[in-house]
Write a protein that binds this DNA or RNA. Structure first.
Lengths: 187, 187
DNA sequence: ACCTGAACACCGTTCAAGT
DNA sequence: ACCTGAACACCGTTCAAGT
């Protein structure tokens, strides 16, 4: 299906193909046989590049962290953008459909693989830091920022899993939530 | 392992055993062979009670919804409890460890089974309604209540999946968030 | 260094036969 | 009505052999 530059494969090719499969069909779509079809090789080839399926997922998680970090710093680097608008752009990105699918799949796998779980925790705290930092620019106290950031990040993760069936919060809703907290006095 | 009242099994016995397995070992722990060991029967017996694994999970999801609803209405029925305290009790319950494990497992399965997914959506909106209603008792406008309820429920679901590695919000934090939103003016 | 092909183990599923 | 036991299919994993 996907044509390749050289006749032989590298681990990256497998990871990319797997990430593609996840996007298209979810966790349970990632079968070694399917990947082999996609890449035009046999199963034995897979086991040359990876010890087992767990190793594949670990590589996928690591690659996903990189992709994620690139996108986030790219957004965050837009210094000319108001902190306000950056927040909205960030949440819009995190909530896009293909992003959601991959993210959920990796989190699914994290349950049975501690290394993937650790990568996921890293991704989460990277996002948390960015949100937390941006909120502090918005004239919030450090305490308020941490609290809202926590709520928002958890809400974002929740949205990843449950975005069907519950009302989707609009960017304006987030604005409301933020301005609400800003107005609140200490304690 | 678990002694039974009668010599023969009902579907309920399988569902309960499966729910137990999930709690102990997560989604991937639920293997038919393991269940058979637990119940002292052979695989053929399983297929007498269920068409396949999917059917088991559908039954588990339905049973979980009942359990969930019982707990929630029980809490909500405590009319003498302040709306405030009820909210905290509710979130404390939803965040308990065994609850989290089952909940996440069922949500995992929901991805590949539309019937389970629907049950999960029902559970979510039942929770949403309770939170929404309780918030309205707290002198919030309907709009504010819907918004905060949405944020809280999503955050709760997010917490289900990511509660390791991120700071855990305390009940007091939720109080803060609520009072913050109450103070916020219209629009 | 990278891949094939055939084998094996594990687990979901089926089914004829038992009580 | 509920269960056994043996068979089969699918898929992850291994490995000797090829280029």
């Amino acid at each position: 299906m996907t044509p390749r530059r050289s006749s032989r494969l590298g681990a990256v090719d497998w990871v990319d193909a797997a990430l593609g499969l996840v996007t298209a069909e979810g966790v349970r779509g990632v079968k070694i046989a399917r990947l082999c079809d996609e890449l035009g090789v046999t199963k034995g080839s897979f086991y040359w590049h990876f010890a087992d399926l767990d190793a594949l997922w670990e590589a996928m998680a690591t690659r996903w962290q990189e992709i994620n970090r690139l996108r986030v710093t790219e957004l965050h680097g837009l210094a000319e953008m108001a902190a306000d608008a950056r927040l909205i752009a960030l949440s819009t990105m995190l909530i896009s459909d293909s992003h959601l699918t991959v993210e959920k799949a990796i989190r699914d796998w994290a349950r049975s693989n501690e290394k993937v779980a650790e990568t996921v925790r890293n991704i989460d705290s990277e996002i948390f830091d960015v949100v937390d930092g941006t909120l502090q620019e918005l004239a919030m106290t450090a305490d308020q920022a941490r609290l809202l950031a926590g709520l928002l990040v958890y809400a974002g993760i929740g949205y990843i899993h449950a975005h069907v069936g519950l009302p989707t919060p609009t960017p304006e809703d987030l604005q409301h939530a933020r301005s609400g907290l800003i107005l609140s006095g200490a304690d």
